[in-house]
Design a binder for these strands. Structure first.
Lengths: 340, 340
DNA sequence: ACTGGCACTCGCTACAGTCGAGTGCCAGCA
DNA sequence: TGCTGGCACTCGACTGTAGCGAGTGCCAGT
């Protein structure tokens, strides 16, 4: 059953009105506020079809219509017109991101900016270690049997781990270790590192071997295998806008999901910079987020993504605006990273 | 006007019952559930006095009594009996904190543990840089005009900053710089560092001077002056327990306050490890938190605190239990830090 | 000084009635 | 065939009333 142009226009109008007013929209109001050129009765007929097809529904018999998840999906895919950012927004983005002193700062500023512009919850993934390469490895002696291993990645991420050595080790051995690991590993992607680390242990001279073995274990286990992904959150207070109407009355499941880093990573950590992913309500695999929508994309210095970012909000959100903002912010962050 | 022992016992009973049931408590219920040895009528007289003195109040004329902030204060100061941790809780704390791989991990585990045990929002401040001393400074060349400065503090904190040099600098100069700053600064407290950094610039040989000047600026401005404090949060979903009855219906102000790092730092970043601070409702200077209570303390490897931690919840909280848990967690974290 | 008894208050719930927004359907018209 | 105006109908939201019951304050009695 095809939907003709007018029916699509009706759906678009319903989505736009409902997003704006947060109230079920009736046929009369619709023809008043949009130039549809037909009477309310005609609109009602169209609405009946749209409802039959599952794009809209009635909360109660005597109420107006509300888009369903499927309706939003159609809207996003075929009906929404791109909404260019306002100059003010562009300026806000630029102003916000200059002057960041380090990666942490970049990520924090970004996530706050995104929350502020979209007025929703923002999530930013730190540049993924798996997609970073090693810029430098530093070994700092803490005691004779303890080293602090600091890894600096080309994305600016810095990770540190405590290494408990099996036996005391003199300072010049530490220097040797440092030289060796840097020679072998600098410049390699972390995801390709394991065989190199393995080789490092096997090739090492006997007196360094025990220390090198422990060091490699730490490297492999805590940095590479369970590659430590991280995220930053902001704007949770925005969940309370629309006073409990969104999210069917309880923020609890949303707040719980937001605290699960693994869940959030899965949500935002997939897309390439060029694509924007929109997950609407039910499409979400996380049960706790069945009442929410997520708009996410990747960011990176070039065409490949080093991390994801996005926002989470009620299914009743301004998709075109949100998508535009998420894209713009991701692009700016990518440029910022490219400068380093 | 003095409150005799029985009136205090009545207040204690009211607080305990209200905290447990979340419902205004009447005179009949009180005598049934506590061994007060008097009749409801007598309790009513006592209640009238307590109300006159501002320790309890009636939500409506025909309802039971509810403690006021002042009532909770009296309860916390004079009436609560210390509640020892259950063995299960002790075990949970130990289990949770072993196996942390680095400081970030310690902080994250701690904040989650605290949220889980108290079933409220937990806040943990990272060890304050101002109260840390320098363990090592590393300079990693990014390009000929860019260095990454990595500072490792004795508390395990690692901070990095990008340094844009005024002119290209050869590799051996970087080595010199690294040696110089480490010689002068390792072991000093960050709060005492400024004159040393100043001296470093003045004493440096001419060909290092420009680079050293920039480096010192970064050190002073971004690490020392606005000493970067950080916090970790967990358990925001716990705010939704007690379904909107706490926090007078809106989580918004609470969520907003939680996102303001400055606010949270002020709340939890004061006390010494030995003392526990309890701020009840109105006592809170932050307007957004007038409906909440905060229990906080300091933690550190020794007797002085390097950071604060605490929990935030409704004024109607289990103070004795929360205080005990916060103290215990702080002690364990202190021990953990002392081991490094 | 405490207690039992009693009148009183007032929030909560249930129920009935009204209002109005919005619908579905149908006959008529281009 | 497709659109429109008209009309009966539905049902949620709101209002007002009444009864219930938890809880209180007060008072006279022990």
């Amino acid at each position: 059953m095809g939907l003709d142009d007018r029916k699509l226009a009706v759906l678009r109008a319903i989505v736009e009105d409902y997003v704006a007013t947060q109230e079920p929209v009736g046929s009369r109001a619709l023809v008043e506020r949009h130039q549809l050129g037909v009477s309310p009765a005609t609109v009602r007929n169209d609405m009946a079809v749209l409802e039959e097809e599952g794009y809209i529904r009635q909360p109660h018999t005597s109420a107006g219509r509300v888009p369903t998840d499927r309706g939003y999906r159609l809207f996003v895919d075929r009906l929404s017109r791109v909404k260019p950012l306002s100059p003010a927004e562009r300026r806000a983005i630029e102003r916000f991101l200059v002057g960041a002193v380090d990666l942490d700062d970049v990520v924090h500023r970004t996530v706050r900016l995104l929350a502020q512009l979209t007025r929703q919850v923002a999530v930013v993934q730190y540049p993924s270690l798996a997609r970073s390469s090693v810029r430098h490895l530093e070994l700092v002696p803490i005691s004779t049997t303890r080293l602090m291993l600091v890894m600096i990645a080309d994305t600016g991420r810095v990770e540190q781990r405590l290494v408990e050595l099996p036996a005391p080790i003199p300072a010049d051995h530490v220097t040797d270790l440092r030289r060796l690991v840097n020679e072998k590993l600098v410049g390699t992607r972390l995801s390709e590192t394991p065989p190199l680390v393995q080789a490092l242990v096997e090739e090492s001279v006997p007196h360094l071997r025990p220390a090198m073995t422990t060091l490699s274990t730490v490297l492999l286990e805590t940095l590479i295998e369970r590659h430590e992904e991280r995220i930053a959150l902001a704007g949770t207070a925005n969940l309370t806008r629309g006073g409990l109407l969104d999210f069917q009355g309880s923020l609890r499941p949303i707040l719980e999901a937001l605290e699960e880093e693994v869940v959030m990573l899965k949500l935002i950590g997939e897309a390439e910079p060029s694509t924007t992913r929109v997950l609407i309500g039910d499409e979400n695999e996380v049960d706790n987020l069945r009442a929410a929508s997520v708009v996410s994309t990747g960011y990176g210095p070039g065409a490949t993504s080093v991390g994801g970012l996005g926002v989470l909000g009620p299914t009743r959100m301004d998709y075109p605006g949100t998508i535009a903002t998420v894209r713009a912010v991701a692009r700016y962050v990518g440029e910022l990273l490219a400068q380093n």
